[in-house]
Design a binder for these strands. Structure first.
Lengths: 147, 147
DNA sequence: AAAATATAGTTTGATATTAAGCTATACGAC
DNA sequence: GTCGTATAGCTTAATATCAAACTATATTTT
């Protein structure tokens, strides 16, 4: 394969990967928006829902965002009374973030809907195709971890 | 395949797709950041570079963003003297956005670097794998167009 | 021609996001 | 115990992003 061809193929593949990810994200985020949640807010609630109360640093690590960002996202979730902060009595630097009752109820419902949306999105591929896509994506993603 | 299994597979595939896209984006955006450009700014400059002068609406359509957003991005590019706006003499509602000399020089250089970064990213897959990934992603992406 | 409608771009208000610097707390070394 | 360092979280200043309301211009209807 000539250099020009391989460059063309790489750019083409890149574009399709980005479009697919964007397209899937757009549609799943509509489900979140319908519940009044942004993608980040959903990410935080989901982390708390599946891992239990976490300190902000762990929340940040879980959804791969900066701690400054998490402060704001949790501020907004707190205003909506979906989470509450609790100062750790042992180490007072830590704030543990808890789901409130209404936060817990909301995320339980929205998570099911988002899950269904993702399954629907992936429905354009059969099982074998999904496995294949997963493997190829993993190979690409791994590049990152190693560097 | 049981429902639980197919749901699990779909969620798993989704996660890998997102991670791969994120990982590739992170690394290509570093190349842009090194040149002092954000992803959006790069997108605008690249559109103008390959399509010639465009009105803001067309720029917005090209990079799939809202027109309100484009106003700001172009404001910032204009401050950096990388583009200039020109009021259309025929239909005065239109502003045509042009690359300046320095904008043109910058994007010519940065585009080559970004292209190289993308080729490097895709390098973890061989040609056949890239074609396969492209096909699978296209199937996923298409869902969007049809709806 | 005047009124209604459509279109291009801007503004506003909310949220997100990062990097970098800041405060408060904790902990280990001396 | 005090000092230096590390850590958790907050703040600030940019930029991004959207939706919705708005302005200016153009076009269509009547």
């Amino acid at each position: 394969m000539k250099k020009a061809d391989s460059t063309y193929l790489a750019l083409n593949t890149y574009t399709k990967l980005m479009r697919a990810a964007e397209s899937v994200t757009n549609r799943t985020s509509r489900v979140m928006a319908a519940a009044g949640l942004t993608i980040s807010q959903f990410g935080v609630l989901e982390a708390l829902y599946h891992k239990g109360p976490l300190c902000q640093r762990d929340v940040a690590a879980k959804i791969l965002k900066s701690t400054g960002n998490i402060t704001l996202v949790i501020d907004n979730l707190e205003k909506s009374a979906l989470v509450r902060r609790e100062r750790d009595t042992g180490d007072r630097r830590y704030l543990t973030v808890h789901l409130t009752k209404s936060g817990s109820e909301l995320i339980a419902k929205v998570f099911v809907d988002v899950e269904a949306a993702i399954v629907a999105e992936m429905g354009s591929l059969n099982g074998d195709e999904q496995e294949l896509l997963g493997k190829l994506c993993k190979k690409l993603g791994l590049r990152g971890e190693q560097q």
